[in-house]
């Protein structure tokens, strides 16, 4: 006897499995017809607007083993249904990757953050997903469970394929996110540009993680959101920075390069030119601040 709670709302069957075995069984059974949700903060508005009406909704929220934040073997692991509110207040995140907490704190409003999950933020694959740029900069990987029970890990920068298309195949479920705990000398920054101070969808966001040695950049990871069809890691800027002394010219070059690498659209929130300008301005500031911090606080 399956423990899953079932409820039918109009033509949608709503399932709430309570453990991963149950989930796997459901996903195998409803392959191709099931949409996975956790907080459903994006799914419900989409359904209300009539843009989608899944035959089966599988809600992960009752699966206790999917909600956690823990350190394991030098890595930080986060369960897929961990809410934004929990990320924002987690001591592990605050000490290991505070800029991820910064991003989580800027998702929607308190009600949204109490429901929205990190797994949903990534699997939904919106270019404006707030947690994607910091996770890309942290070098995160996602764990995916197939309907046959197979588990695979995919680096986040390979997870996003194209606009709203991910590595998730039919029946796949994103179950957890892991990233190596950043070395002590590394500092991450996340900046979201929205059209108001709270509860807004970003027009551009940039995350940077730099490991500095005096004014020389040892390692660099750079990611941007809302400026391309997917949240993107900008490898060419990382190459430009790594192993180099960071000066005014290099910062300017990075900023120029970002504009060349991204492909923002114009929509109701802003024009492509605005997104492009503001993203590069933010990147410039983040790199400058990383260097300034080094000067102020020393190694």
């Amino acid at each position: 006897m399956r423990k899953t709670k079932t409820k039918t709302v109009t033509s949608t069957t709503y399932l709430r499995p309570t453990d991963l075995n149950d989930l796997q069984q459901i996903m195998a059974e409803h392959q191709g017809r099931a949409a996975v949700v956790a907080g459903a903060t994006d799914m419900i508005p989409q359904m209300r607007a009539g843009r989608t009406l899944p035959a089966v909704l599988v809600d992960l929220c009752e699966i206790a083993e999917l909600s956690f934040i823990r350190e394991e073997h030098g890595s930080i692991a986060i369960g897929a249904t961990t809410t934004m509110a929990k990320l924002a207040s987690s001591p592990i995140i605050a000490s290991g990757s505070p800029f991820l907490a910064t991003a989580a704190r800027q998702v929607g409003h308190p009600q949204t953050r109490n429901r929205a999950t990190i797994g949903g933020n990534l699997a939904n694959a919106s270019p404006s997903a707030d947690t994607a740029p910091p996770l890309l900069a942290l070098g995160a990987a996602v764990q995916i469970m197939s309907p046959d029970g197979a588990i695979r890990d995919v680096p986040l920068h390979q997870f996003f394929h194209s606009y709203r298309v991910t590595d998730l195949g039919e029946g796949d479920v994103l179950t957890r996110i892991t990233f190596p705990r950043p070395p002590d000398g590394a500092a991450g920054r996340f900046t979201k540009i929205g059209l108001r101070s709270a509860s807004s969808i970003s027009v551009a966001s940039v995350a940077v993680m730099l490991e500095m040695e005096e004014t020389t950049c040892r390692t660099a990871r750079v990611a941007a959101g809302s400026v391309a069809p997917i949240p993107m890691r900008v490898f060419r800027i990382e190459e430009l920075l790594e192993g180099h002394e960071i000066g005014e010219t290099l910062v300017e070059e990075c900023s120029e390069l970002l504009r060349a690498e991204i492909s923002p659209i114009s929509d109701v929130r802003g024009s492509d030119k605005y997104r492009s300008y503001v993203a590069s301005a933010v990147l410039k500031r983040q790199i400058e601040m990383a260097v300034a911090d080094r000067r102020t606080f020393g190694a």
Partner: peptide, 23 residues
């Protein structure tokens, strides 16, 4: 309220922004 040829592009409070308490 942004309109494109008579079509409202800001039909909800996700697109139609008003100041929040922190603004």
């Amino acid at each position: 309220v942004v309109l494109d040829k008579g079509n409202t592009l800001t039909p909800s409070f996700a697109e139609y922004l008003i100041p929040s308490a922190v603004d």
